[in-house]
Amino acid sequence: MIAFINVLVNGLLLGGIYAITAMGLSLQYGVARILNIAHGEFIMVGAFLTFVLHTKLGINPLFGLAVAGPALFVVGYLIQRILFKTLKDRTPTPAAFEGSSMLMAFGILFMVQSIAIFIWGTNVQGYSYLAYSVYLGDIRFSVNRLVILVISVLICLLFYLFLTRTRAGKAIRAASQDPDAAGLMGVDINKMLALCFAFGAMMAGFAGMLISMVFPIYTTMGMQYTIIAIIVVVLGGLGSIPGSLIGGFLLGIFGAIVSAKDPGLNMAAYYLLFMVLLLVKPSGLFGR
């Protein structure tokens, strides 16, 4: 029984990573209408930036928050301004934009990964950080996962507050709900879209930082996180920040339970859960 509770706790702690992985994508798709296949590559870059800082310069990985996040924010902002905005201006309909932006994201995926391979090679890398446990009674918490959980929940909360309480956040939400009306009300739509994409990339940077603390990292790992992110996003509802958070936890716990039964079916169960949910409630648990 204790073992099972420990498994559940582990899943819950892992859920934090899933949540923050998904949040960026949710924002990018929910507002900017870009299904960013290259999301995982941004995560990979975030992870490697943190890794380099930690192993080469000896800086605490948590400091990656201050480096990987902002760095990717800038990259994301530029990518949206230079590439996606041009694309949006050139495509006639929103539906066409969804298709071609995915294609473009695919191109970006190739470019980012290629550059990362030039710099960091294809080797598996990683570092060991806070890899020990604390006990609460008989229940065990891995310290690094605990840290991850706290950070991801904090980031979610902060971002949620930003979206609901600040002027810029409200503008972003307005832009996502009705771009035309928001534009008429004096919201600079293009700037908001770029901001959204940049925030999404920043989240990917944070996620990468957290992932590098618990998992081995390598330059070709992006796709697997993109797929997890897509699953969680749809689970929680496209564009919903709390949805991503709860979707992440659900996936973590669900994965843990399945792993306890038969780890060989772990991945299959993710997809099954997700496909069934799509059929029952396509808009996700918290979708509009």
């Binding site: 050139r90 294609l103 473009m104 191109g107 190739f110 470019m111 290629s114 391979i117």
Partner: peptide
């Protein structure tokens, strides 16, 4: 050794300039 970079660039340019 440069396959992915060139390929990605061609893809991005195609989608931008040959919609």
């Amino acid at each position: 050794y440069h396959y992915m970079l060139i390929f990605g660039t061609v893809m991005v340019l195609t989608i931008l300039y040959l919609p």
